[in-house]
Design a binder for these strands. Structure first.
Lengths: 177, 177
DNA sequence: CCCAGATATGTCAACTTTGACATAAGGGCA
DNA sequence: TGCCCTTATGTCAAAGTTGACATATCTGGG
């Protein structure tokens, strides 16, 4: 069974055929909103999926040092993805460097603490802006069950998360006085 | 310079001396709320910090197959931690298996989709309960600048996050009809 | 007294992720 | 024509993470 990375690739390919480079581009947006991978993971990942029969590649003409390969999901790949989507969710281990820093805030001067929180806030305020624009692009709201609705729902998830982060930073800045 | 794991260990040891096992226990709570590590990472991590002179160990009597080592942070360790806390934050790559599944929701039957979201919601509703109890334990609100305030602030972060997750799941269930 | 289970510290192989390095075709510009 | 930048596909070593395995002591029950 593929790893989470493999399912991220399958999730993209279930919507349309793509080359490795096109997948790389989508790792910024929209996939980048909830999963990340460098191209050094993507190309071997695609080869692995092909070896497992979950995708099939056709060589097309294109630039670059090596032949361009366009990947298409197979029936087997689609079935594996469908099965994974509804398989039991395991709680992911929390890993937030920012919260870890907040836990150590008492060690540093108040001003330096504020600077930390403000910096984090501004990064996420930028992301919030992006999600707001992204969400506005989904008017009218797509029909549940459609790929468009799934995209819209993930954008809403990002929006919800970033709003919460910014609100938390505001609370913390207020509490720090 | 230590990794994030190293700073998580230092962040705990900056508050009090601890053995590897005690650190393991705190990886469930409260550190587990924002950083995770297995004991197979913790013991080598502590050895590494000791080799770098950031912590010092004293052997104490205790149970177990090997001598128990109690770790104490050094001045150098405290300085390294303090420097790290306010160093520039790099945006962490997003990696949410749940959101990835939501992106693929269109592939499965509506009922199976609802089950997925409901399962995720219930896990986070449980966490939300924990954070609510945790936060109630911090009355009256600790003074900013104290270690207690830092603990309180991380509990608030968890509370804020889990509330948001549950609210999002409710929205999604509603939207799915 | 003996066994089971909890306590406690460690190692190891496998897998994931990152960042650096490599490389060749095509386009724009001096 | 020559050079640099972008496009595009890959490899590799190092670091981080997980899950399984190992093992010795202490505690409580039969």
């Amino acid at each position: 069974m593929p790893s989470a990375l493999g399912f991220a690739l399958l999730g993209l390919l279930a919507r349309q055929e793509l080359t490795g480079y096109e997948i790389s581009a989508r790792m910024r947006a929209p996939i980048g909103y909830f999963w990340s991978a460098r191209h050094s993971q993507i190309y071997p990942g695609l080869q692995r999926l092909e070896a497992d029969g979950l995708v099939r590649a056709t060589v097309i003409t294109g630039p670059g040092p090596r032949p361009t390969r366009r990947y298409r999901i197979t029936d087997e790949g689609r079935a594996a993805l469908r099965k994974w989507v509804t398989s039991p969710v395991r709680l992911q281990p929390a890993r937030s460097e920012f919260r870890l820093r907040v836990y150590c805030l008492w060690l540093v001067e108040p001003g330096a603490g504020r600077t930390l929180v403000e910096g984090y806030r501004s990064q996420h305020a930028t992301l919030l802006d992006e999600y707001e624009r992204e969400e506005e692009g989904w008017r009218p709201t797509p029909q549940p069950g459609s790929p468009e609705f799934a995209s819209y729902a993930t954008a809403r998830a990002g929006l919800s998360y970033e709003r919460q982060v910014v609100a938390y930073c505001d609370w913390l800045l207020e509490a720090l006085g």
